[in-house]
Write a protein that binds this DNA or RNA. Structure first.
Ligand SMILES: [Zn+2]
Ligand SMILES: [Zn+2]
Ligand SMILES: [Zn+2]
Ligand SMILES: [Zn+2]
Lengths: 159, 159
DNA sequence: TCGTATATGTAACGTTATAACATTTTGAAC
DNA sequence: GTTCAAAATGTTATAACGTTACATATACGA
């Protein structure tokens, strides 16, 4: 499920994953984009938790059980998924996470917990606005924005 | 010099570098931090331009002329320089740039031009404030913030 | 079914960063 | 000045992340 709160340790994550996969399926169908077996598998692996996962971790999970998929296959799948807005890349930790706001076409901001490894999208219009405004005076034309905030999530802070 | 505008192609960059190196020297002295030969050299290489530079680029420049310095030496120097706030790392491009606001102890934001490769620090209190505010409601404790905006600088836009 | 565009397979390679351990340098205490 | 420990550097190898190049297979409309 798309939750506005930071992912709770005990939540029904099966629902998150199922919802995300279903939405992806639907979106790709609508666009005529081909969500192939490999891509679908990678997407489901990305959604195994709310902790962003590295490409080689995904690769290992894919190959668990004797597969021989090469790194490039994972990167190609991730490229497709990112192009469709189904997955985000977190530059600060070289990892990938499922998008919780499929279809919104957003420039997202991320919260990353250093303790549990989970991440969440902030998607704050106010922050985005402040950013655009801050840049405006400098004569700079924005193409891409990366906002990644690391720290302690509420659940880890409590424990 | 510390310029508030995006670095101009024709500016007196020798002055930028000289000022930055002098400030670094002074700061380290005051702190009792050891700005050794390697570290000073790396810092000066970082300041060769306003375009963030990769660690292996720095390594190549260091070894130009037959040196045999290993990668780890560059990373150690960069670690020191970052710890002292003299250099920033840009996660989105795996590159390093000199800090233009030595001593301010700031959480900086960066503008990166895709065309000329130059970068500048934004250091907008308003943006920082908006970010903190946006996160506030989520119960998240901020440790580190990464804001990297890529696009076209005013000079490249003009040409 | 033909032909082309898209997707995947295969192998090698490039780039970025760190681990582990030996040696040297530094600066202060004696 | 000698001694000693901390800090810095040297050395070697390896981990982690990502891409190039080219061959093959699959999908899908004409
Ligand atoms: Zn969940
Ligand atoms: Zn946490
Ligand atoms: Zn300059
Ligand atoms: Zn430019």
């Amino acid at each position: 499920m798309v939750s506005r709160a930071f992912p709770t340790p005990g939540h029904d994550h099966g629902a998150c994953a199922a919802q995300a996969l279903a939405a992806a399926e639907k979106l790709c169908q609508a666009r005529g984009a081909r969500l192939t077996a490999v891509r679908r598998k990678v997407l489901s692996l990305v959604w195994q938790s709310h902790a962003p996962v590295g490409a080689y971790d995904l690769l290992a999970r894919l190959n668990k059980g004797g597969g021989k998929i090469a790194p490039i296959a994972v990167y190609r799948a991730l490229d497709f998924l990112m192009a469709q807005g189904l997955v985000h890349r977190l530059a600060s930790i070289n990892a990938y996470m499922g998008c919780a706001h499929i279809g919104h076409d957003h420039a997202a901001q991320f919260l990353i917990c250093k303790d549990c490894g989970c991440a969440a999208e902030l998607e704050s219009p106010a922050l985005r606005k402040a950013l655009v405004k801050a840049v405006a005076g400098r004569g700079f034309t924005i193409d891409r924005e990366i906002v990644e905030i690391s720290g302690l999530c509420p659940h880890c802070k409590a424990s």
